[in-house]
């Protein structure tokens, strides 16, 4: 059941659609809001998102794994050599997933309790060890290799989110990849470790409608 409030900062209407997504950014004043039993409160302010040419936007809908979804949030992360978007997809069954949007490729990732991830290497990383790119782990009888490990920083955010995307929030992020397009990300900060697992997808795989339009570019045939 979605709940509607007025932004305590600017008074604009803000909607929270799921109890699992207690944070959001006010679409008008960029205030960071969290929802609790008492209502909504301002916990900070998000930086405006820099201009980019991502084809995804809030409100884009699609269908994957036999489930319809809508894009309802986004966090932009940066590291020393680049930046990328993580789009939040809310599915018809109430679950959510992240659509990583980096270097023209897309990854569909769902959070998985880290307690289920029983690999020594990843547990060591969660305890503070550095990840070694190239190291292989076996998860659910599948091999994944660590391809990247770096410090990332939250740049900006919009829409509804499962956590408060404080600008400047730092994480240690480890990317893993399998031979058949499987991928996973481990994110660690001082307080917790989160684990996301999924696979590479193409924009066409998502059967998107409401893609962002750009001057001078034709929408792909499947979305036009």
């Amino acid at each position: 059941m979605s709940l509607s409030f007025n932004c305590p900062n600017c008074g604009a209407e803000v909607v929270f659609r799921s109890a699992a997504l207690p944070a959001r950014v006010c679409g008008y004043c960029h205030s960071l809001l969290t929802r609790n039993d008492g209502g909504v409160m301002v916990v900070g302010k998000s930086s405006p998102l820099p201009f980019d040419v991502s084809p995804v936007q809030i409100g884009m809908r699609g269908r994957i794994e036999d489930q319809p979804f809508e894009v309802i949030g986004r966090v932009r992360w940066a590291w020393t050599d680049g930046a990328w978007n993580e789009w939040l997809l809310l599915f018809g069954d109430g679950s959510h997933a992240w659509l990583g949007d980096a270097m023209g490729q897309f990854m569909l990732l769902r959070e998985r309790p880290f307690s289920e991830v029983q690999t020594r290497t990843l547990k060591d990383i969660a305890r503070g060890k550095e990840a070694m790119p190239g190291a292989e782990i076996t998860l659910d009888a599948r091999k994944l290799a660590i391809v990247d490990a770096r410090d990332v920083i939250c740049v900006a955010a919009e829409g509804e989110l499962p956590f408060t995307p404080t600008t400047g929030w730092k994480l240690y992020s480890v990317d893993l990849r399998g031979a058949k397009g499987e991928c996973a990300t481990l994110q660690r900060d001082a307080l917790a470790t989160t684990f996301y697992q999924g696979q590479y997808v193409t924009l066409a795989d998502l059967a998107p409608t409401g893609l962002r339009a750009f001057e001078g570019w034709a929408l792909p045939a499947y979305a036009a």
């Binding site: 059941m1 659609r17 997504l21 809908r61 809508e70």
Partner: peptide, 11 residues
């Protein structure tokens, strides 16, 4: 709690 997918609004 089931979230509500809003009706498809023409973007």
């Amino acid at each position: 709690m089931q979230p509500e997918m809003q009706p498809v609004a023409d973007i």
